[in-house]
Simulated scan of single mutants.
Amino acid sequence: MDDIKQLLTIEAIKQLKARYFICLDLKDWSGLRELFMDDATFDVLGARKVSQPRSTQADPLIEGADAFVAYARERLGPIVSAHYGHMPVIDIISDHEASGIWAMEDWLYSATGTLHGQGHYHETYRKSDGCWRIQTLRLTRLHVASTM
């Protein structure tokens, strides 16, 4: 892949991730669904509070884009959220595959309190029908401050 094509691919993946954050915060569930491969997998154990022991975490590996959107709608639908992605490191594997790590920060506001977290998204991407989509997503947290 030449340098220009590589830069255009990286920009397309940055736009994909920006749409992910925007769709989450605006509760655009159909827009969110379009960003994933049908058979995408999601490891969101890192979305739980850092202080909560892993053995008690109820969120399993989520298989399938529809299942993830239902999960996000249930968890984020009733609250105000602000998600941010920073400093991506995107590696182009082939014309149709890439991987990336994003530093992340989120703020979640509910009637019962506030959660502020920092961590990373670890993702893989696949190009299908001319569009880049998320194939796998794993969220890890470095810090959580929560009154929820």
Score class of each variant (00 low, 15 high):
144 V>N: 13
27 K>P: 12
63 E>I: 06
96 H>V: 14
22 I>Y: 15
128 S>V: 14
66 D>F: 00
42 F>Y: 13
132 W>Y: 06
7 L>G: 05
101 I>D: 06
139 L>P: 02
66 D>A: 03
15 Q>M: 04
113 G>C: 05
34 E>Y: 03
122 H>Y: 14
34 E>L: 11
117 G>W: 00
142 L>V: 09
125 Y>A: 10
120 H>M: 10
16 L>V: 05
8 L>M: 08
87 M>K: 03
106 D>N: 08
38 D>W: 07
19 R>V: 07
117 G>Y: 00
129 D>I: 10
146 S>T: 08
40 A>W: 10
130 G>E: 13
112 T>Q: 13
90 I>H: 12
145 A>D: 15
23 C>N: 14
144 V>M: 11
1 M>G: 07
60 P>N: 11
35 L>Y: 05
37 M>I: 11
57 Q>I: 05
102 W>C: 14
120 H>P: 02
66 D>E: 15
63 E>G: 00
92 I>W: 01
51 S>H: 07
137 L>K: 04
22 I>Q: 11
59 D>G: 02
70 A>P: 06
95 D>P: 01
28 D>T: 13
121 Y>V: 00
135 Q>H: 08
45 L>M: 11
121 Y>A: 01
133 R>P: 04
12 A>W: 01
37 M>P: 02
7 L>F: 07
83 H>P: 07
142 L>A: 13
54 R>H: 09
31 G>S: 05
7 L>R: 03
62 I>S: 13
45 L>P: 02
133 R>F: 01
30 S>Q: 12
17 K>I: 00
74 E>L: 04
35 L>A: 03
10 I>W: 08
6 Q>Y: 08
71 Y>G: 01
141 R>L: 08
24 L>G: 09
16 L>K: 02
111 A>E: 15
111 A>D: 15
91 D>W: 01
143 H>F: 14
146 S>I: 06
98 A>G: 01
96 H>D: 15
23 C>H: 12
37 M>E: 03
83 H>T: 00
12 A>V: 02
75 R>A: 03
134 I>H: 01
91 D>T: 04
117 G>Q: 15
16 L>T: 08
87 M>A: 11
48 R>K: 07
132 W>L: 01
89 V>F: 14
81 S>L: 00
25 D>W: 01
68 F>M: 05
141 R>V: 05
147 T>Q: 10
74 E>Y: 10
82 A>K: 05
45 L>G: 08
113 G>A: 09
15 Q>G: 06
106 D>G: 04
139 L>Y: 09
